[in-house]
Design a protein around this nucleic acid. Structure first.
Lengths: 248, 248
DNA sequence: ACAAAAAATTGATCCAAATCATTTTTTAAA
DNA sequence: TTTAAAAAATGATTTGGATCAATTTTTTGT
């Protein structure tokens, strides 16, 4: 509580997420123009919804801090977790066609978001060519992430899924300038299990094994990767080409 | 071979797919403007690629006739099938961000496509507001289809997956004005198995069962749905609300 | 700080779908 | 049309992860 929240601090041009978030590829001037349309509201408390299925769509959201779970339910009430959104990620793409949100977005921890009113964003993008490309990038990322998720579900066994999930989270933290081998992760094992198409029991057993094998420890929201090399081995990665596989 | 292929016949405004394809929601005049930028080439023979991973992107493709399989490979060479594209479907969304195709698109049968040069499409969409919304619809559909695929992989058993696949194909044919209970499907069981995250043996056994139970017969590229009601029962659908679940 | 609820862990058992093996059918090529 | 190759079908066996059940740990709300 030491930091005073000044309006100066909360703007795109001073935001540490520029390289990950929307402003990527925009020049100083254009970032400022983007900044002007961004709406910032008080943080969401844990468990609060940013939007829910059926809500009308009028803005995209960029996560500033925290985590958001995007989820829905099957016809028979089983939960489906589509992804986890970290700072810099953009949420709301699913509603672009129907102008209505298709899924539920819930804060898993205290979460700040930047609201990007879609109409204003569109107007702005007519004058900033890089911005419309940036919108396409964000959309494309959403499609590609979905495909990676399917690949994981089709072709990986339980060990590999859990290992891949942790590895991806590590990479995403690393891209955001944090340590990739030690980070806080406010996601329930239960939610990870649903996301990976496994049961909580299976995830728990695998994490116990990874802990015993001194590969990864994940206890009380804190992840420690003790041996990145062996984690990659579990996934079946080739070490020479550490190609990045971003995931949710 | 009775029909003479005139250039008159091959245009958006006379195309039977208007309601399914890109022109949805455009007025007569705008369809004509769209028509002018569309490039039509001779059909692709079975086994030929429309594009491959790594190819540079410069156009979206709308399928006019035939089927396209969108697929890739995992690091260890296993195939992943992302979807099957039927007449009216739009292909190439995955490349919008990187301007480079991420997957392989192969004709599973003789296939005609309409090429929509992306730059021209963008220019046009500045003057036709409905068109830019239509682009968003197509993109959004791609995201949503991917999520439906994940849901299938996570929450459905083998019987349900096969049943859902056949049901979705039936619906897609019905939307295109064909009979929903009897249609030709030029897709190998093997490819369906890969798409559904199953083995060919499992798919074969399930089809044998569906045949014996007089629910569905799929032999030699021809599908007959004998009992739609029971097919829906396998999926676990509620009959009263026949909500449509489009799939690839 | 304490009580109640939720989440995670751990063990025992079971089953759906994979794998392995072979035969039959279909498709493509000569 | 014949032949070779690919795909599909069918049977026997195995197994990874689900399910069921009970305990321990962590979180939450008062």
């Amino acid at each position: 509580m030491k930091e005073v929240k000044s309006s100066f601090h909360v703007s795109c041009k001073n935001c540490g997420l520029q390289k990950v978030c929307f402003p990527t590829g925009l020049n100083r001037e254009d970032v400022e123009r983007l900044d002007n349309i961004v709406d910032r509201r008080p943080p969401l408390k844990k468990g609060v919804h940013l939007f829910q299925a059926g809500d009308s769509f009028n803005a995209l959201f960029a996560i500033r801090a925290g985590v958001i779970k995007l989820y829905s339910f099957t016809d028979n009430g089983e939960e489906i977790v589509h992804g986890f959104y970290l700072p810099g990620d953009v949420l709301g793409i699913d509603a672009l066609g129907s102008r209505m949100h298709q899924y539920n977005a819930m804060a898993l921890d205290t979460t700040s978001v930047c609201t990007l009113p879609f109409e204003k964003l569109n107007e702005l993008s007519e004058n900033i060519p890089n911005l419309s490309q940036q919108i396409l990038n964000v959309i494309s990322k959403e499609v590609l992430d979905g495909r990676m998720h399917s690949e994981l579900l089709i072709r990986r066994n339980a060990d590999q899924r859990v290992a891949q999930f942790i590895y991806n989270m590590s990479e995403r933290h690393r891209h955001r300038g944090y340590a990739g081998s030690e980070f806080r992760l406010s996601i329930l094992h239960r939610d990870v299990a649903v996301y990976l198409g496994l049961t909580p029991e299976t995830v728990s057993r695998i994490l116990a094994k990874f802990h015993a094998d001194e590969i990864v420890t994940w206890k009380k929201k804190e992840v420690f990767i003790h041996n990145m090399h062996r984690l990659q081995d579990v996934i079946g990665m080739h070490h020479e080409c550490e190609k990045q596989t971003i995931d949710r």
